[in-house]
Computed example of a mutant assay.
Amino acid sequence: GLTGVKGSCLDVIASACETKTFDTNNSICALKDATEKLQQWLNTPATLKLWIPTLNIEAELEVTRLYLLYISGNEAKHNISRLTGLTKNIQKMLGDHGHIVPLEQIPLALDDFAEHLTEHFFVYYSTWLAELLNNLRWGLQEYLNPIFKHCYKSAPELGELAYRYDYPISMDSDISKSWFWRIMNNIRTGPYYEKFSASEYLKMEEI
């Protein structure tokens, strides 16, 4: 609600790629490309072969990586009393793949899902995912670096290492200026990691 975009942080960045408020000589290109590739990766169906000993089910599931992240993230984040929505979704997912399981049995299998996703599936894909996220950070850097260079000014009158930002003329609210200052400081710091590419052996579709 604060951003005006209904969706995830990635949806907010995708929206920024369309508005291109700070674009300078197509500096948006790397960010747009990185955003589209991460969205594609998340929304691509993956085949997950999963033995669920608690339910005595050997399942072969075809769901998006985003959905698997949803399962893994919610299971890690909440205790059992907060996982009603997740258990209903898992029940439906299993049902869609031919495995009918009573809802009250699903919570017993959450540890099976967590073990496979966190210790196998996402461990395998973590380097590839890290590459995609790092490219997104570098895309932000390349997009905003021209406006940073234009707005950044040293301010020796305030101290030896002091600096300021000359805000764009259209930016007249204190809140906008505060956020601009913060993101410019992130550009000033730069990404933590150099660009890298994961091995193709870590990008195979099935494990």
Rank of each mutant, 00 (worst) to 15 (best):
T3R: 03
D11V: 03
S15I: 00
E18A: 04
E18M: 06
T24V: 13
L31V: 02
L31R: 01
E36N: 04
L38Y: 06
Q40S: 06
Q40H: 03
P45N: 05
P45V: 00
W51F: 02
W51S: 08
W51C: 04
E58I: 00
A59D: 05
A59E: 02
E62F: 01
R65G: 04
L68N: 03
I71M: 13
S72G: 10
G73D: 13
H78R: 11
N79G: 07
I80W: 09
L86T: 14
K92P: 06
M93T: 15
D96C: 09
H97R: 11
G98K: 14
H99S: 14
L103D: 09
Q105A: 14
I106K: 00
D112L: 08
F113R: 08
E115L: 12
H116V: 10
H116A: 08
H116S: 05
H116Q: 12
L117C: 06
L117Q: 03
F121S: 06
F121W: 04
F122R: 01
Y125I: 02
S126Q: 11
S126V: 06
L132W: 05
L133S: 08
L140W: 03
E142S: 09
N145M: 05
P146H: 08
F148K: 07
K149Q: 13
L158K: 12
Y165G: 05
D166F: 05
Y167S: 13
M171C: 15
S173P: 06
I175Y: 11
F180T: 05
W181E: 15
R182K: 10
R182F: 12
I183V: 15
Y192K: 15
Y193P: 01
E194G: 14
K195F: 07
S197K: 15
A198Q: 10
E200I: 14
Y201F: 14
K203S: 12
M204R: 15
